[in-house]
Simulated assay, not measured.
Amino acid sequence: MTTTSSDTAPARAAASAKGAARREKILRGVIAIIGRDGYHQQSLRELAKALEMEAQHILYYFASREDLLRSVMELWDKDSLANADPAALAGPSLDLYVAAVRRSSAAPGMSYLYLSFAADAVVPTHPGHHFIRARQARVRRDLAEAIRAEQAAGTIAPEIDPLRAARQLSALSNGLQLQALLDPDGADCDPAAEVAAAVARLRGAVP
């Protein structure tokens, strides 16, 4: 008998309320570790040791190290929305995107986790390939929708191509966060400020 993803042991473990709570505790523990120690491509064993548990216990809730890290990024994204200004949650928002970049830039370990995971996931056989592609597509789609909404409101010129501008904002954010990681002591690279300036230019506030 073949099994589907919903039949796997980690999926069954997370199905109960207790299992879901334990799973989230592990994820928040990993986020805390990365926030404290940074991300240096820790192995599952290293992460388990930092969590003061056995690697096998983590594998009871997650299918693999990649599944664990993917889930960490999903929870990080979810928290970004939970901590946002309620007024910005009515729909996709350029200001909300700037806030997300600011939050990520303030946590270099999380920035590096995403960029490193995304680079590895370029390979189609990587376990996180579809996740990264879907996440990138969602970001571009939300940015394009936000731009269209501002065009309808008259704050962004109608001749701006929403999809092209969305791609450019996404690429700018990723590139700037990489620069900030490569030169952490550099005072001239503030990803959130640069993305905010790009948004202001879209709105015509900056020449």
Rank of each mutant, 00 (worst) to 15 (best):
N174R: 01
A196S: 15
L172N: 02
R148Q: 10
L172V: 08
A157M: 00
C189S: 09
S111W: 08
E150M: 13
R164W: 12
A192P: 05
E194V: 11
D190Y: 06
L182D: 02
P127R: 07
S116R: 14
R140P: 05
R135S: 04
R167E: 12
F117G: 01
V123M: 11
Q179F: 14
A137T: 15
A134E: 12
V122M: 09
E159Q: 04
H130Y: 08
A152R: 06
D190P: 00
Q151N: 10
P184D: 08
A171Y: 10
D142W: 02
R103C: 01
Q136T: 14
L178W: 04
P184H: 05
I160K: 03
L172G: 08
L182M: 04
G128P: 01
A134F: 06
M110E: 09
D142H: 15
G154V: 01
G109E: 07
D142N: 15
F131Y: 15
L182R: 00
A187R: 15
R133S: 11
T155L: 06
I160Q: 14
A193Y: 03
L181W: 10
S173M: 14
L178K: 13
Y112T: 09
E150G: 03
P184Y: 09
T155A: 15
A153G: 13
A134T: 14
L176R: 11
A149G: 10
L176C: 05
R141W: 00
L178Q: 07
L178I: 02
G109L: 06
D120Y: 05
Y114V: 11
D188N: 15
